[in-house]
Design a binder for these strands. Structure first.
Length: 564
RNA sequence: GUCCCGAUAGCUCAGCAGGAUAGAGCAACAGUUUCCUAAACUGUAGGUCGGAGGUUCGAAUCCUCUUCGGGACGCCA
């Protein structure tokens, strides 16, 4: 990054006023082919300005520019290829990592301002499905990323503990439920009641009506309805917390939908005062035709509220309570219309901060190419997948490293890491076809691969008895074989910046895979522990790699065992 | 019907504020362990970047159209 700026500056000095430093910097690229150096400047656009052949310009520039950080400048056609001074860059970078340790790569753009993150948000009385995994894992990672950029993240688990579904569930329980069975296996039993309700409702529309009226009773504070609701809620939360513990995810707030029950009148009132509410088929809606959107439903014909009402209340509450700078919603792509409407209504109400509310959508977890449906009971349970992955990791440990001391702890770290990394490594908008085989893969571009690389590096440092000493400057004559690793280490900040700007954790995941690959290649080529004057420099590099791999994994919410 | 996503190697995906021969991993095949953890490394093979136009010195990348897949579109969330 800073090397790019240096090149832009040097070019600017030679070129004079023809282009701004910023423009030049934008033109500079990182060649894919290492034979083309570390930085390249294509002269095509300059050729147009100067009305001169691009390769002539490249020639001329190559003779004029110079800087102590350039080792060599080559001209290939219209390209100016810059080779950086390996010794200088390597020793600089490694010293910086040794000095900053896990702070390396931090970006200070947030000034400690709060960022609320709406994530996970499972529904009570429904199993924690693979679909919720995505929101949990992406949101959790974004919280770390945003924090790395200087913000204060606030993780909010907006539990789905309110809505017509509870009317349906209560109806089903009253009709077919047995207390004993529910107590034995709460989620499973409640889910089968829910599924049964939808099966039966297909032939009996009166059931849906009953469900609706039970929900109305719930909203009106009916004791029987409330008691059942509380019970379902409690049992569900118990189950969820087990999963969060496995994944090591923590929240700052569990304020879910029910939390906003007493805050919705105010929203309705505000909308009324602004004369934004319109009656339509006995329901109350906000018209959004001017915004090119379908109307937003605020109140149903029976007076009960909807999720849009609750989300409006939640948005107001979060602004007032946390005064967020950004408010992120990590919610599936299928809800993007809802969030557009939400934004539009808030803007219409005159809240300019609505612009700072960002929906962060992600693709669906598909089963056989189709959406998984709770109603049809077609879900894959996250907990089962996690446990299977942990078992698999344990098996691998027994095979490969039977003398490991804390096998169960490491098996958990690796097994869970595999599942989490699998979800984070790809661009979040892609749909994912559920495949247990893919998720439990421990080789190639996977979480365990990165963890393994880290463990190997740690093992070397242990064997060498290497101690961190902030004063010692690593020094080596060539840095030739370690150059790829070094050059990736300098890129860490860039990866973090991209992840933040695009709210995309996969940027970090891809980066640490690249770094791990480069390190493993180096490991295969060079005997790091071999005695000699360069050994200390190599060890300092290995240490730098451990710092960045561990920090990269941490930003994804994944643990890094030192042995595995 | 309208709107939102996506399409790159057999499979899963990178690459996309345009740049040099389109890259990984998995699967396949062939190798590497008296040597720092083989969950690794090396090599071989594998491509009309869905299709057609357009903009440009230059397009996987930008624009338009089109095909296919997924999703959303008032009383679910």
């Amino acid at each position: 990054m800073k090397y790019k700026q240096e090149l832009a500056k040097v070019l600017y000095e030679v070129l004079g006023q023809e282009m701004q430093v910023k423009e030049l910097e934008m033109l500079i690229e990182k060649p894919k082919n290492p034979l083309h150096g570390d930085l390249a400047f294509p002269c095509f656009s300059l050729a147009k300005l100067k009305r001169k052949a691009p390769n002539r310009i490249a020639e001329e520039l190559s003779e004029k520019i110079q800087s102590p950080i350039f080792e060599k400048i080559e001209v290939v056609g219209a390209y100016l290829n810059i080779f950086l001074n390996k010794k200088m860059v390597a020793e600089d970078t490694i010293s910086e990592i040794i000095k900053q340790k896990e702070k390396y790569g931090s970006l200070n753009v947030g000034n400690a301002r709060p960022v609320t993150i709406d994530l996970s948000s499972p529904n009570i009385a429904k199993p924690f499905s693979m679909g919720h995994l995505r929101s949990t894992v992406i949101g959790n990672s974004l919280a770390f990323i945003v924090e790395k950029c200087g913000y204060t993240p606030i993780r909010i688990n907006h539990i789905g503990d309110w809505g017509t579904q509870f009317g349906k569930l209560i109806t089903a329980y009253k009709l077919w439920g047995e207390e004993e069975k529910v107590k034995e296996n709460p989620i499973k039993e409640l889910l089968s009641l829910y599924v049964k309700f939808h099966d039966e409702a297909e032939n009996d529309p009166a059931l849906v009506e009953q469900g609706r009226s039970w929900f109305k009773r719930l909203e009106d504070g009916d004791e029987e309805a409330l008691a059942l609701w509380r019970w379902f809620r409690e049992e569900s939360l118990k189950e969820f917390s087990r999963i969060y513990e496995l994944m090591n995810v923590q929240f700052d707030s569990f304020a879910g939908e029910a939390f906003y029950n007493d805050k919705m009148n105010r929203v309705v009132q505000l909308l009324e005062e602004a004369e934004m509410l319109v009656e339509s088929d006995q329901a109350q809606v906000v018209d959004l035709t001017d915004e090119g959107l379908p109307p937003c439903l605020i109140k149903k014909s029976d007076g009960a509220t909807l999720y849009a009402t609750r989300d409006l209340a939640a948005a107001l509450f979060r602004k007032e309570n946390y005064n967020f700078d950004w408010s992120l919603y990590v919610v599936g792509n299928e809800q993007s219309l809802h969030f557009k409407q939400l934004n539009a209504v808030l803007e219409k109400m005159g809240f300019s901060w609505a612009k700072k509310m960002v929906h962060i959508p992600f693709g669906m977890m598909l089963k056989d190419g189709k959406k998984m449906s709770t109603r049809k009971g077609k879900v894959v349970l996250l907990e089962e997948v996690l446990n299977e992955s942990i078992t698999m990791a344990k098996y691998n440990i027994e095979e490969k490293n039977p003398n490991l001391t804390n096998k169960d702890v490491v098996a958990k770290q690796v097994g869970v890491g595999a599942v989490m990394f699998h979800d984070l490594k790809n661009y979040r908008m892609n749909d994912i076809e559920f495949s247990l085989e893919e998720m439990l893969r421990f080789e190639g571009e996977t979480g365990p691969y990165v963890q393994y690389t880290y463990a190997r590096a740690c093992s070397i440092l242990r064997k060498a008895n290497w101690q961190i000493d902030d004063e010692v400057k690593p020094s080596s004559p060539s840095w030739e074989k370690e150059w790829k690793v070094v050059s990736l280490l300098t890129e860490f900040t860039n990866a973090i910046k991209r992840a933040y700007e695009q709210f995309d954790p996969s940027q970090i995941a891809k980066y640490i895979v690249d770094l791990a690959q480069a390190f493993n290649k180096y490991y295969g080529e060079v005997k790091i522990l071999e005695d000699g004057e360069e050994q200390q420099a190599r060890l300092a590099l290995v240490y730098s790699v451990t710092v960045v791999l561990k920090e990269g994994l941490r930003l994804l919410g994944i643990e890094a065992p030192e042995e595995m």
